[in-house]
C-alpha cells in the first residue's frame, strides 16, 4: 500500500488548512496490523485514502486477510 504525493497534492486538510504529508500510519483489519506510508494532516492526523487505494491495494489486502 503506498500513495504518491504528487497525485493528490491539491488536497489539503480543511480543518487545519495544512498540506498533507506522507508519514507512517498504523492500519489494521481482522488479525492483521501493518504500518504503511499514507498521506495525512500533520496537525490533526486525519488520514487521506483515495478511491484507487481503497478499491485496489486495500481491498486486496482485506481479501487476503479474510481468506487467512
Amino acid at each position: 500500500m503506498y500513495q504518491e504525493k504528487k497525485d493528490y497534492q491539491s488536497w489539503i486538510c480543511d480543518k487545519c488548512q495544512k498540506e498533507l504529508e506522507l508519514t507512517k500510519v498504523k492500519v489494521h483489519y481482522l488479525e492483521g496490523e501493518f504500518e504503511v506510508e499514507l498521506l495525512n494532516c500533520p496537525t490533526c492526523h486525519q488520514v487521506f485514502i483515495n478511491e484507487s487505494l481503497a478499491l485496489g491495494k486495500m481491498a486486496e489486502v482485506e481479501q487476503g486477510l479474510e481468506d487467512k
Partner: peptide, 13 residues
C-alpha cells in the same frame, strides 16, 4: 461526485 468504502481501519494514535 464519488463514493467508495473500505473495511480496513486506521489506528488513530
Amino acid at each position: 461526485r464519488n463514493v467508495y468504502s473500505h473495511r480496513m481501519e486506521i489506528v488513530e494514535e
